[in-house]
């Protein structure tokens, strides 16, 4: 049977790579190799996973240096004549092996003003929306919270500006709320202020790694930036607001 070498990060900050050999079967993904290693060679190898089908966003890691979902990375897309490196995401504090502390993301999300529905459209308390309105936000609502985009964004990864910038995932989340056909809340001041949208310089790296193929930069971040600019920097509108209170 064909075999491949997996160079897997073991331990936390002071850890190191360790080589394991795994049998390769057709259709196999990196997560299968990790499971095989767990079951036969390293019972305590830590990783997260749930769905094994790219739906839950648990199994994020860096494979051959690229942020990816382990369950959706096929071995036949990787060069197997050299070791496949598997290491944890770098933008978050390591816990052990492939597991990182992503709790910051949950804290950030809680700071974003939640959905607030406008008054119902019909007497029975329900709303009417057209499918085209729905389609517009679907793209953002597909997010599986794998945090790979957070991992790759230089503002977080290299500059560690976690306290000042919510990161691409939560710009997508804000976009989903702001463009929600029923939402009545206003998040633009937060975006400009505490949420630090200005830190994003539209490198597009987040879009490239998103396993859900969300066009994060063009469809979520740029429109939000435009709204912020319209509100806070457009002189005519500002004057208008001064006079209209």
């Amino acid at each position: 049977m064909a075999q491949a070498t997996f160079r897997v990060w073991r331990g936390a900050s002071g850890g190191q790579f360790h080589d394991y050999t795994a049998d390769v079967v057709p259709g196999m993904v990196v997560l299968d190799a990790i499971h095989q290693i767990q079951a036969t060679q390293a019972g305590d190898l830590a990783c997260r996973w749930n769905c094994k089908a790219g739906k839950c966003g648990s199994c994020s890691a860096e494979i051959n240096g690229k942020p990816r979902l382990m369950c959706m990375t096929r071995l036949n897309d990787l060069p197997l004549d050299e070791p496949v490196t598997v290491e944890p995401m770098k933008a978050f504090p390591p816990i052990r092996d492939l597991v990182t502390d992503v709790s910051w993301n949950y804290t950030v999300k809680k700071k974003i003003k939640p959905f607030k529905a406008r008054k119902p459209d019909a007497p029975d308390g329900t709303w009417r929306m057209s499918q085209s309105d729905v389609d517009r936000v679907q793209e953002f609502r597909k997010c599986i919270e794998c945090f790979l985009c957070q991992d790759v964004c230089h503002v977080l990864r290299e500059h560690a500006l976690h306290p000042e910038f919510i990161g691409p995932r939560f710009l997508v989340y804000t976009a989903a709320l702001e463009m929600h056909p029923l939402d009545d809340e206003d998040r633009l001041a937060d975006l400009k202020g505490d949420h630090g949208i200005g830190y994003c310089n539209i490198t597009g790296c987040c879009t490239k790694v998103c396993p859900e193929e969300i066009t994060i930069t063009e469809n979520a971040i740029i429109p939000l930036k435009e709204r912020v600019v319209d509100r806070f920097y457009d002189p005519v509108k500002r004057l208008f607001r001064v006079f209209s209170g």
Binding site: P114, A117, G125, T126, W127, V134, L182
Partner: peptide, 15 residues
């Protein structure tokens, strides 16, 4: 769920 923000696919009359 819809009142809490869930977005479902729609009928032609928007339900």
């Amino acid at each position: 769920l819809e009142a809490w923000g869930a977005v479902f696919d729609r009928t032609t009359d928007g339900r």
